[in-house]
Amino acid sequence: MTQKTAGLTETDKQAIEELRRRLSNELKEVPSHSDDYSLLRWLIGWDYKIDLIVPKLKHTLTTLAALKLHQADFSSIEKVTEYVNATCTAMSYYPGGIMGYDKEGNVVAMQPMAKTDPKSLLPTGRLSDMLINRIAESEGIMSLVRANEKRLNRKLGAILICDMEGFNLDLLWMPGMKAYMGLLQVLQELFPDAVRKVYVIRAPAAIQIGYNMIYPILAKQTREKVEFLGSDWKEKLHEVISPEQLFEHWGGTRSAPTPFGHIRMGGKVPKELRYNPDNNPEEPMPKQLTTVSVSARNFQKVVVKVDRAGSCLKWFFRVSSGDVIFSIDHSSGKVIRPVFRLSTEFVPEWGEMSCELPGEYTLTFDNSHGKLWSKEIKYRVQVIAPNKD
């Protein structure tokens, strides 16, 4: 017997069915996003504008499928945490984590944002790794939300607590702010109407400078949900979150080996974890790189042919300045590497994948967002055939 979804109007139901019809192929591949409340979030997030929603939702579904996040086990907070923490060696220096649940069943995430050290963090890993990591944790949170929605039969979401203890103006270092705002825009595009409430705690007066920078890119629904709590923040949190769900550092009674539990507390990244080309076997010699100039409002494609399934496709590139939009597609139309806007100011981009399908693979370097300046890209693309038995 099909469970009826509470709180849906007739208009909601008709719009949800239209989304299912127009995105039937993509939703078959990522079926976890085809439930009523998941599709309702898209409708609310984009004011029920179906023609606007369809390509955006398609982008989310193909991104999750390309990253294979639809196959990950996100059935518990512990499993999400384990998956996310394994994505890179410096993960403990990315502050945050999933705390627990509020009294209504919403998922509570904690971000001790002021514990970030952007000047040592950005030179540590690829920007794509940071994006994939944040997308994975967000999808993990929404998987937990969907599980509770199914159990409780009501629309839920994420509660975000932003702890600004230790905030200083060094956090407003422009390359770091640019990376953070780019990341925020990506997550809002992929997960609309996911946030139920944002609580900002222990915020000094100077935080207003940073908030004024971020405010213009916040979705209009999110702006309305941000609340700055005063000195009684612990009591305010207890009104919506049981102390048993909060670790000691945030006024809770939840048992853990440390006052922070499993929440990552950031800090300065040790020098030995920062990127060193001498320690990267994928770093090519300069003569092995091909140079291409991508003019503003334009793109360049690199097409490689893969004759045998199981071949390894490898790529490496640097952008002379600014950023470039990078993606990989297969001749069948399948998205292999999702569209990411990437800078290589601190760390180059590289990666590899096993080609399940023979055919042509197209690597796209897109500068269509550029208004005036060309981007010089130095790259190497390799196809390595599988070993013969």
Rank of each mutant, 00 (worst) to 15 (best):
L363D: 00
A15P: 04
E352Q: 11
K314Y: 06
N153E: 05
G166H: 11
C88L: 13
I201L: 06
E189K: 11
E139S: 03
F346W: 05
P286H: 15
Q185F: 08
A385I: 00
K225A: 07
G7I: 14
Y48V: 03
V195D: 08
P281M: 03
G370Y: 05
F340A: 01
D232N: 08
K268L: 15
D73F: 09
R318I: 12
I135T: 01
G97T: 09
L8P: 14
M181N: 10
Y48K: 02
S343T: 10
E104V: 09
P259W: 09
T364Q: 07
I98T: 01
G96S: 12
P284N: 01
E18Q: 10
Y93E: 00
T362R: 01
S92N: 08
F326C: 03
I159S: 08
R274W: 01
Q185D: 14
K58S: 13
L363Q: 00
Y211W: 12
F340S: 03
M110G: 14
T362K: 03
G359C: 00
I336R: 08
S332A: 10
K178G: 01
H262D: 15
P259F: 05
R318G: 04
T11G: 13
H262N: 13
A86T: 03
L43Q: 03
P31D: 02
K334W: 02
G310D: 05
E360P: 11
T81L: 03
P257M: 04
T291E: 13
M213T: 09
R380N: 09
D193S: 13
C355H: 07
D35V: 02
L357W: 10
E239V: 04
